[in-house]
Write a protein that binds this DNA or RNA. Sequence first.
DNA 1: GCAGTGATCATA
DNA 2: ATGATCACTGCC
Length: 193
Amino acid sequence: MTQLAATSPSILPPAFFARHALVVARQLLGKYLVIPREDEQLALRIQETEAYIGAHDLACHGRFGVTPRTAVLFGPPGHWYVYFTYGMYWMLNTVTGRDGTASGVLIRGAGPHSGPGRLTRALAIDSRFNGQPIAATTGMWIEDRGEPVRRSRIRRTPRIGVDYAGHWKEKPYRFLLDDDCLGRRAAMHSRVK
DNA sequence: GCAGTGATCATA
DNA sequence: ATGATCACTGCC
């Protein structure tokens, strides 16, 4: 099993997130969500994201201004924004862009987990991460493991579950990575080399 | 197609 | 205090 990485894993710094949400959403594809688990740490390849680009984006939580819930989203980039919805599910987001703007990226799928509610349920992610830095000291971070993502592997669609957002519901702000040899596809076909 | 589930926010 | 809404999921 060759584990020879071209570059050593690097933890994404705050500067990574201090860019437009659309850039961050695209760039997060193929990165690894990492969480310590018992003796080992879990690293899941991010394969689906959505960008929410500011208070003017009628799909974005920030559209009603700063509230107790959205304060984190309006805050500095490089922090987790984790909120509870539908009485059951935690949504995992990164805060992006400039401090004072409501922009973020929802992580909708990583590793074998598809769907933002299933992802957080599987990883036991909840409010304890809300407002925390995206850093190793927090206990949940994102790594670049040096795997390039080909442009042709990326699909864009409108965002899910934002029918209330007027014309913003049609914006292609959802990003999906079609895995080639990693993850679900390989597992599903379970081919022998 | 639609029920479940409860925090959040506006309104009062 | 009340009521509508909701960046979802699972079952019909």
